[in-house]
């Protein structure tokens, strides 16, 4: 049975991309068999024009599947199965302190924030920062009311320990239209019920 492969270069590029993105090491199986499956346990892959799919999660014994346009044949990998093993990182971070906070005031390239380790702590503090201290390109989204996080700790890279401070904006999902609508209805209903004394 003929197996149709996508041009080698394209498939190779996609695999390399996948490997790079996920930082995985793939162990190549020792024995590989090709062939169509019997009717009861066939995994049908719908033809997808011009795409290559990789089934990397080992939910079944079919660990790697190539899909091309106009063919339904699959690649079956037999034991030893293909394993995806996470590569050990060479960097780590030891947290010493983490402060949550909120921006109180922004004044050009500087901002004031109130910070705390625990919201119920009596010991809170306020600090002024230069916006360049913010991680990445978060300068624009840092405005009054924005929640922030400040972590202080040690970054350990290839055995070398370095003190590190990371100040970043806490990413919170935006309020959905539905949430605003629901809230608007509840507030309106509530405010309409209140009888203010007339003049």
């Amino acid at each position: 049975m003929a197996i149709q492969w996508r041009p080698r270069q394209a498939a190779g590029q996609a695999t390399a991309e996948l490997l790079r993105q996920q930082d995985y090491r793939i162990f190549i199986p020792q024995r590989v068999e090709f062939g169509s499956r019997s009717q009861d346990d066939t995994i049908k892959i719908a033809p997808q024009k011009g795409t290559v799919g990789f089934k990397t999660a080992a939910a079944s014994s079919f660990d790697v599947v190539a899909v091309g346009s106009g063919f339904t044949t699959m690649l079956e990998v037999k034991a030893p199965r293909a394993h995806l093993q996470k590569q050990e990182s060479t960097t780590s971070f030891t947290l010493l302190s983490k402060f949550d906070g909120v921006i109180l005031r922004r004044n050009g390239n500087r901002f004031w924030a109130r910070l705390w380790e625990n919201p119920n702590d009596r010991e809170q503090f306020e600090a002024e920062f230069d916006v360049s201290e913010l991680y990445g390109s978060e300068e624009k989204i840092a405005q009054e009311g924005t929640p922030i996080v400040w972590t202080i700790g040690y970054a350990i890279e290839r055995g070398t320990r370095k003190r590190q401070s990371i100040l970043y904006v806490r990413r919170v999902p935006p309020v959905s239209d539905e949430e605003v609508l629901t809230s608007g209805r509840a507030v309106k209903e509530k405010m309409d019920r209140i009888r203010w004394k007339k003049e």
Binding site: S97, R110, R114, F125, E126, E128, F129, D130
Partner: peptide, 23 residues
């Protein structure tokens, strides 16, 4: 002045923040 128990944290706060004080 805001004071933490950890010397390293205190040093970092003093270095990074332009000004800081305890509420």
């Amino acid at each position: 002045r805001y004071r933490t128990r950890d010397y390293v944290v205190q040093k970092t706060i003093d270095e990074i923040a332009l000004e800081s004080y305890a509420i």
